[in-house]
């Protein structure tokens, strides 16, 4: 009896894995020929002896490989960081809705490891996008992306602008005059960027992160509260998101 391969469960070979910043790693995984993804979507990786898969934004999809940028923080990411070229990765994906890839002037904002999906978005949008990102210090900037980021801020001023990326947002918006803002990073950054966007009357798409148990929309473990035209409802980050309109989220 053969077990048919289904579309959403994938196995891919690690083609590259390297440390690209302090505790930050880049892994490239060869994917099936019919794989396709868009910026803002994620993959959910099985970690040996762990119940919950770990979700990661796709940082790039090119030449039959996906790139994933991750920070070594706990047991799951420690497991992935120890993988070697040639190892097999079991993942579900691409999952989620992703950013709208409309060809309009887009300010892509990333904070920390959250730079990954907005980097991908910038790559897809090309000349229609500007990528700005904030990091704790220069050691936290992934070297593979440094030259791709149009403006960098660091909390300690060790590289680029001194301070939070939020501090520079007004100037960036006034200078670049984007038609929309797309952001990924820690919860507080998402909230503040969404507020700034609202002040400037620019639509804002935020890529949310939440601990997920299933990553396929059944467990309701990763919900956020949305306010859509006055109607309060839960949405799951994994299936309905991870990208939401900033103005709809009940922060």
């Amino acid at each position: 009896m053969t077990i048919e391969k289904n579309k959403k469960m994938n196995k891919g070979e690690v083609t590259q894995i390297e440390r690209v910043a302090n505790e930050m790693f880049l892994i490239k995984i060869k994917v099936a020929a019919d794989f396709n993804s868009r910026p803002g979507q994620f993959v959910s990786i099985l970690c040996d002896n762990h119940t919950m898969r770990r979700p990661f934004s796709i940082m790039n999809f090119e030449n039959g490989e996906i790139s994933v940028l991750f920070k070594k923080k706990g047991e799951g990411t420690a497991y992935i960081a120890c993988l070697n070229v040639g190892d097999t990765v079991d993942f579900i994906g691409p999952q989620g809705n992703g950013f709208h890839c409309a060809p309009e002037k887009t300010l892509c904002v990333g904070a920390g490891v959250g730079v990954a999906p907005v980097y991908y978005l910038k790559k897809v949008l090309g000349d229609n996008a500007k990528l700005v990102a904030g990091f704790q210090n220069e050691n936290e900037i992934p070297f593979c992306l440094q030259s791709e980021i149009d403006f960098i801020a660091t909390d300690d001023g060790s590289l680029g602008g001194h301070g939070s990326i939020i501090d520079y947002l007004d100037a960036q918006i006034n200078e670049y005059k984007p038609a929309r803002i797309c952001v990924c990073g820690p919860h507080i950054v998402l909230k503040l960027v969404a507020e700034k966007a609202k002040q400037h009357c620019i639509p804002c798409e935020v890529a949310m992160e939440k601990t997920m148990a299933c990553s396929i929309g059944v467990c309701r473990g990763c919900v956020v509260t949305l306010n859509r035209n006055g109607k309060i409802d839960n949405a799951s980050v994994c299936k309905d998101g991870p990208v939401f309109l900033g103005e709809e989220i009940v922060w």
Partner: peptide, 9 residues
Amino acid sequence: GTANFTTPD
């Protein structure tokens, strides 16, 4: 139960 999350099939 929970194994459906780890391995959906």
